[in-house]
Write a protein that binds this DNA or RNA. Structure first.
Length: 272
DNA sequence: CGGACAACCTGGCGGC
DNA sequence: TGCCGCCAGGTTGTCC
């Protein structure tokens, strides 16, 4: 579910309700949902802290706290973060594993049916994810650096795009969409791409992610924005989930294969 | 080191 | 309508 555009949308939605607000208390259970710290440590390090910033790195949400710690959330496959008023009649959420009580009568909930997501509190982001690649929408992601790194890998380009140490934030949906936009077959060995193809892929990754953010993410199943509403990116996919349907460019039937164990959608005529 | 694959969990959906 | 098997946007650890 949540890839870079979805996580970025959540981050932007969290700033208004969180920044400047103080965490009064923490409600949670001891479970896999809390990583790198036990329940008591998490509560102790969050309670009394004021949120000073909310940012994203790869698919991680980083809430900066006044004491210098980072409250980290990863949404996994089915995680959601949302803010509700204490007095709202919002129905009970059986998957709300962590609830932060905020000043001003609101609470931040982390809800995750499948429990692939997690929360943590650390001093430095590197404690959570020490080996994350460049942010594709930042100046750190250069065309030259991208081309150089592609030469060092022989595996399928789709599998490489999913490697978070290669480039941050791309997941299964936007990998497929980027490769379609660049007209490159998902199974091409990374080191086989010609310069023109590398240039197309570099541009495609950026534009696909930017379009995803502009549409506030893709609500295929579980993903929702902080206010509970759906994104719109799912209505504009070229290939993801469209197997059996005609390519919007040439009319050829979109195919589905598995690459690195992940469902992979592509147009056999447009992508070579 | 690279790559394939299982594991972690639970819900939703299509098919029978 | 009900049950069963399969699939799912991510990450990590293991094995060859």
């Amino acid at each position: 579910m949540p890839e870079l555009p979805e996580v970025e949308t959540v981050v932007r939605g969290l700033r208004e309700p969180l920044i400047g607000h103080t965490i009064l208390g923490v409600t949670c259970e001891q479970s896999r949902t809390i990583r790198h710290a036990d329940m008591a440590t998490l509560a102790a390090r969050l309670q009394g802290q004021t949120v000073t910033g909310v940012n994203r790195r790869a698919k991680y949400i980083l809430c900066e706290l006044s004491g210098g710690d980072l409250f980290i959330v990863h949404l996994g496959m089915t995680g959601r973060l949302y803010v509700v008023s204490d007095d709202s009649h919002w129905h009970a959420d059986r998957w709300a594993h962590v609830i932060l009580q905020l000043d001003g009568g609101q609470q931040l909930r982390f809800s995750d049916p499948r429990r692939f997501g997690f929360v943590s509190v650390v001093s430095n982001f590197a404690e959570i994810a020490p080996n994350i690649g460049p942010e594709p929408l930042s100046d750190d992601f250069t065309r030259a650096g991208f081309a150089e790194k592609l030469k060092r890998h022989h595996k399928a380009i789709k599998a490489l795009l999913l490697d978070q140490s290669f480039v941050a934030g791309i997941g299964n949906i936007y990998a497929d969409e980027s490769l379609f936009r660049a007209r490159i077959h998902s199974l091409r060995p990374a080191d086989s791409l010609k310069k023109a193809e590398i240039d197309r892929l570099y541009a495609a990754i950026r534009s696909v992610l930017e379009d995803g953010i502009a549409r506030q993410g893709a609500s295929i199943n579980w993903y929702r924005k902080v206010d509970g509403t759906t994104g719109e990116a799912q209505d504009h996919f070229d290939v993801y989930g469209r197997d059996g349907e005609p390519c919007l460019t040439c009319g050829t039937t979109i195919e589905k294969i598995y690459v690195g164990g992940r469902g992979t959608h592509f147009c056999p005529k447009c992508q070579k």
